[in-house]
Design a protein around this nucleic acid. Sequence first.
DNA 1: AATGAATGAGTGTTCATTCAT
DNA 2: AATGAATGAACACTCATTCAT
Lengths: 209, 209, 209, 209
Amino acid sequence: MNTNQPNSIPKRKPGRPKVEKSPTKMSILRTGAFLFMEVGYEKVSLESVAKACGITKASVYYYFNNKSELFTECLVAVMTIAHNATATILSEPIPLKDKLIKIAIRQMSNAHLDFESMMRDAAVELSDEQTENIRKAEKKLHDVVHDAFQNAINSGEINNHHSPIVLAHTFVALLTMKNHLNLKQQQIPVEQLVAQLIEILWTGIQNEG
Amino acid sequence: MNTNQPNSIPKRKPGRPKVEKSPTKMSILRTGAFLFMEVGYEKVSLESVAKACGITKASVYYYFNNKSELFTECLVAVMTIAHNATATILSEPIPLKDKLIKIAIRQMSNAHLDFESMMRDAAVELSDEQTENIRKAEKKLHDVVHDAFQNAINSGEINNHHSPIVLAHTFVALLTMKNHLNLKQQQIPVEQLVAQLIEILWTGIQNEG
Amino acid sequence: MNTNQPNSIPKRKPGRPKVEKSPTKMSILRTGAFLFMEVGYEKVSLESVAKACGITKASVYYYFNNKSELFTECLVAVMTIAHNATATILSEPIPLKDKLIKIAIRQMSNAHLDFESMMRDAAVELSDEQTENIRKAEKKLHDVVHDAFQNAINSGEINNHHSPIVLAHTFVALLTMKNHLNLKQQQIPVEQLVAQLIEILWTGIQNEG
Amino acid sequence: MNTNQPNSIPKRKPGRPKVEKSPTKMSILRTGAFLFMEVGYEKVSLESVAKACGITKASVYYYFNNKSELFTECLVAVMTIAHNATATILSEPIPLKDKLIKIAIRQMSNAHLDFESMMRDAAVELSDEQTENIRKAEKKLHDVVHDAFQNAINSGEINNHHSPIVLAHTFVALLTMKNHLNLKQQQIPVEQLVAQLIEILWTGIQNEG
DNA sequence: AATGAATGAGTGTTCATTCAT
DNA sequence: AATGAATGAACACTCATTCAT
């Protein structure tokens, strides 16, 4: 580009250039996501997020207009990551049952709250648009599981006694069990727990061929 | 009151004595239980409990030392009631599968939060003793289900591929699905949902005899 | 009242009886009124009101649900007092001109902001009902002045060249002049200032009889 | 820049030089003046000024050291403009009464806050020097009115019953009435309102010759 | 010349808790 | 038995101001 051509001087934006994806913003997102998943919407104060990032509350507001907006962006990020990881596993050339086990282990290893509980907690403060955005990200996650069950039904890998919708929800419901069990004394290793859960589910849906 | 005066000996009423707890205290317990189950620990203010009872905040403190104590007593009450109802159903002379369905329908018909989510919400504010008290009440509920599964295994009604502990937890985990599904568009009637869920579980554990 | 009659025991309300017009509440009202009139809505923080009363911010909230409610009650109180004082003066058996002077002196001696400026300041935060309440109290003040001018026109005490509406507003507008003059160096004694102002107004409206 | 190099002597443009102030600074001044007059000192955030100018908050600080300085310069500018306009009208060869009407109409047509209310709003944050600067600009406006009244008294156009100081202030006070009336239901056309107000004032001060 | 980043001080509001009555 | 009064600690959010780039 020739800056000497009088008619087409490409005006370089004045002032300090913006950093691509500000590390501070990323730090807030990561910390927020972790905290929200850990203790829920209400119990996370912006002060705590800031402190965990080593910055000030006001700085959080520099990047996010308010708490519900931060929450939304954090949740969408988490959902997107979970979706990608799940989709990757589902596309592997292994039996569905093994995929389900891998997904369950991964999910349960991430300490986090039950998704619906958290949404209920945040519900009153989220705008319709924000709720929709999170739901959209969540639906993508569900859809990828739903499709996997649908395909398995079509290919005869599992029987067609149950709608893939219910199967997907059942699978997700089982994933929350880790929280139920973890908080009590009986510490069962994740792998073992997953194995048993999937076994139960699988016996109920497998094709007897 | 002078108990020595012959005329004023407080005659102990014959028959089963009424519950000794003052009606006000009972009212607080009932209201608190409902509200806590409805919206969780943090979102229930003592002011709201008082107002719902038609009394003042200070009156709540007259009967309960603090919020966590009220919470504890409410939860223990709820658990005890649920335990009794469950035990009654389990003692009926019908197949285990039908019992599970009856229990599931009853549980899901009571709109309420996921138990574990609520405990996590309240966790930081509960003393160890309070947590233990609630857990004890909850354990009684689980035990009664656990015993039912154990008996079914012993009697051969279901297979012995899975530990009764996991079965009990799986069963309880499935019970929380109502919340997951209800919050979304697809409104499925409780009975139908229960039927499908128990069907899946049952196929996984029934004895093939 | 006979408390022995079993059917009509006048239940004495339980608990600590409420003080008639709580001195604390009165103190808040007085202090708030003074501060609001002195520096306007936004610049008065509830913290400052509380401190001026020797209590805590939370205590202010014990008596008033929020800032706008406190503001409303303060303003209505001020307006009511001003109305009563004005009405009293207007009912005295002296010439209208003298009444106007007395009113003006009283008004100007109370240091306060221009009423409309303050309302504009508070406007965005007041509910429609609150605004209406204040306006109602203000209207009573204006009406009593308006009626006085109307009567004077009817009785021929002043000419009928101007509508009583405009006369009332002109009179009130002149009352705000103290603020304009006071803030500058030229300190003119209130009485002298009032005399000149009313003189100008009066010459414009008196009947030449 | 080396001014010794013969080829780069910055040639001073012939004729009247353009206003030296950068267009950005002028934009800030204009926008600030408008906003301050519209909603007062406190309610104008530097963010809003910047956004209205299409620049950043930090840029405002590049041209003005702080908010009170911006306010001061804005107000002085407004006052100067008002002074010039008023002086122009007063120098026209028409009767004083007509001049007053023209001035009043012009003033009332510019939607803005009462000047004194705004000064009181900003008072605590202005340095003595800043306050003085604004007052000086305002005084020039008052003086030109004051002189007009003085001249009218000297020439016998109006009577000498009132000091020109009070007359000037009375005139200015009447100018604020628009705000008082506009905010209520009775919408009176500016011209009609002005006519009535000046009529009252005029009857009170005219010479009966 | 102009900006992105960051902050400290303050504001309205809520709520569990205490205490004298 | 029940209540009115009062409080301290926390929280979401705003804004003028600073500074390196």
